[in-house]
């Protein structure tokens, strides 16, 4: 199959790059590192017989926490052939980046972790950001963590016909935990650009500086009682989310 050059400004390239962005967050995200696609530099597409559609994208990445450009990444994103099934099959992603982890967030993470372990009460919050886009400064790490955790779901839910962003944290609640690993229950609202739907998920998220962010369970929430669109699913995300090479 020939390799097709894609216009980096066109949607196929951008959708693939956003999938790669979600993958990077599952690998490197933390309450102090939330990676976002900045700009697609180049992209190619290759139809792989029997396997699916393989995109190669080069793009720049920014860290939403510092609003600084943090490096260039090159990713291979394979959307597996559905084989005629309606089931969502998660894409396979492999990435390599330059300079990405040069920004050291260890100290901030340790400090936040220590603070949360030592708090007499558990953290909770609603509507982050509020209707006016405002986020209380001390809640920002929990917004970033939600963005990273949402990327686990958005990665699994993505295909060539989707473009996902996190729209809002409806609620975050810190749970009691017995060890160093902090636990949070999140209700997040995702915006899917193509359908323009706001999709609700409830996530159980764990975090500690040594282990990073994990999504222990993710449960899709129906939009409303009377309008269940055929997207309903509950997925269990295994702790190890590294992709199987295609």
């Amino acid at each position: 199959m020939p390799v097709e050059e894609l216009n980096p400004g066109h949607y196929p390239a951008r959708r693939a790059a956003v999938v790669a962005q979600h993958h990077l967050n599952t690998q490197h995200g933390s309450p102090y590192r939330w990676l976002l696609l900045e700009r697609v530099l180049s992209a190619t597409l290759e139809a792989m017989a029997g396997m699916g559609m393989k995109y190669n994208v080069e793009f720049s990445v920014k860290d939403a926490v510092t609003d600084q450009s943090v490096g260039l990444c090159s990713s291979e994103v394979l959307f597996p052939a559905s084989g005629g099934s309606e089931e969502q099959t998660p894409p396979h992603v492999q990435s390599s980046c330059e300079n990405l982890l040069n920004s050291n967030t260890t100290e901030e993470e340790k400090a936040l972790h220590l603070q949360l372990r030592g708090n007499s009460s558990l953290v909770s919050g609603d509507y982050i950001p509020d209707s006016f886009g405002f986020i209380a400064p001390e809640m920002k790490p929990f917004w970033h963590l939600a963005g990273v955790a949402s990327s686990f779901v958005m990665l699994k839910e993505s295909n060539e016909s989707t473009l996902y962003n996190m729209a809002q944290v409806a609620n975050v609640t810190q749970l009691e935990s017995q060890n160093d690993t902090l636990m949070f229950r999140y209700h997040v609202l995702l915006h899917e650009m193509v359908s323009q739907e706001i999709i609700h998920w409830k996530l159980l998220v764990s975090w500690c500086p040594a282990e990073g962010v994990k999504v222990l369970s993710a449960e899709w929430q129906p939009k409303c009682q009377h309008c269940v669109v055929p997207l309903a699913k509950t997925t269990q995300t295994p702790p190890d989310t590294s992709p199987t090479p295609p």
Partner: peptide, 13 residues
């Protein structure tokens, strides 16, 4: 100090 957001009021509001 982390304050629960539920008790936090946006000063701009």
């Amino acid at each position: 100090m982390i304050t629960p957001a539920t008790s936090y009021k946006d000063p701009s509001a």
